Simulated scan of single mutants.
Amino acid sequence: MSEITGFTASTATALPLYVLDRSQFEAWKATQPAATQAWLGAQGFNAAAHSVALLPGSDGLAGAVIGVGDRADAYSYAHAPHALPEGSVWQLASELSADEQALLQLGWGLGSYRFDRYRKRNRAPAQLVAAPQGEVADLIAASLRVRDWVNTPTEDMGPQQLEDAARALADAHGAQVEAITGDALLQQNFPAIHAVGRASHRAPRLVVLRWGKESDPALVVVGKGVCFDTGGLDIKPADGMRNMKKDMGGAAHALALAGLVMAQQLPVRLTLLVPAVENAIGPDAFRPGEVIATRKGLSVEIDNTDAEGRVILCDALTFASEQQPDLVLDFATLTGAARIALGPDLPALF
């Protein structure tokens, strides 16, 4: 998995970094030398959100200003690592509250990310003199895990690899993992998960991770793990299928959230459930018109095999309810209609 990048402990070559929003800019600008004021004026710089201005000095670069919008949003700071010169080192020169400094670090860590498993990075991020600790470091690490898992092509991120990811988290935090795989899904009454995943050469499974004290409130986290979605026999067109490696994004989010809960030692009794399948096309693929049994005992008629996510989740959510939880959180890339209704930036929450 990707390491956290964009930070350094060395101040030897650090330059001052001013973090300003538009409401602060004019007052700050008035405190600067006349040459700096003229330089910023010539560029029309006003600290608008996601902007950067490099400040000239007698020996070259003397500092920089990054413009931010919502100071309570970590992504307001995320443009800086790749907008500032490669290899440059920066030390905060503005007065930020402790919360704002934490958000700056979080945004910087997220903005420094590049997925480089299959190719060499073409540039390194600028470095911030800071050392993310505690919750900030755990949040960055969890976010990078989600991005890496979703970005990884299916040949390297199938049901077995999702199970491996859960086992790695369990090993790191002292949790227990079991996987109900292949025909064992039928034997243990998870027929809907089996039906969707049975056509693939990679066996479907339900991954179950448990952690925490029996006396703590019960939290169940569920994530849709369709590692690739062809649409099944109701096959997607090419443009619709192109990015379906991301159909395990719910599982990636659930896995990373479970890791974050354990890293932060939250007082909960955690159960993580990941139904992991490929919705493949083959002789044993489930078909339109079939009536599929479910763990709850209800039958569902399949009208379209590209509506597979709700089929695997019904078994997982029934099992989640059997744990008598205080709270269930379920994450899924569950239908493009949500994107049509709300756009690319707003999640649909139920």
Rank of each mutant, 00 (worst) to 15 (best):
M241W: 10
F228R: 12
Q160T: 14
W211Q: 00
L139P: 01
N189D: 15
D234F: 08
S215P: 01
V136M: 09
W149H: 12
G223D: 02
G134I: 09
W149K: 08
D247Q: 11
A184V: 09
I193F: 08
A238T: 15
A192W: 00
A251P: 05
V146C: 08
F190G: 02
A172W: 04
A168W: 12
G240C: 11
D247F: 05
T181K: 13
Q188A: 13
D148H: 02
I193W: 07
G240L: 06
D239H: 14
E155Y: 14
A203T: 07
A251T: 01
V136I: 14
Q133P: 03
V196N: 04
P217N: 03
T181R: 14
M241I: 10
L185Y: 01
P159K: 03
F228V: 14
A179T: 03
Q188I: 06
D239V: 09
A238G: 15
K224V: 05
G225M: 04
A218L: 05
L185A: 01
P237G: 10
V222I: 11
E135R: 14
Q161T: 04
G240R: 04
V208S: 00
G231S: 13
P191W: 01
A252K: 03
V136K: 04
T154D: 07
A168Q: 14
S215C: 10
T154M: 02
N151I: 04
A141R: 13
V207D: 00
M241P: 07
A137V: 10
N151R: 07
V207W: 03
P204I: 05
L186M: 09
W149A: 15
A141P: 03
R198T: 06
R210C: 04
Q187T: 15
H194I: 08
M244V: 01
D229M: 05
V208K: 04
L219K: 01
L144Y: 09
H201G: 15
W211A: 00
R210I: 01
A172E: 13
F190V: 02
W211I: 05
F228Y: 15
K245D: 01
K213M: 09
T181P: 03
S215M: 12
L219A: 09
A168H: 11
K245T: 00
V146F: 03
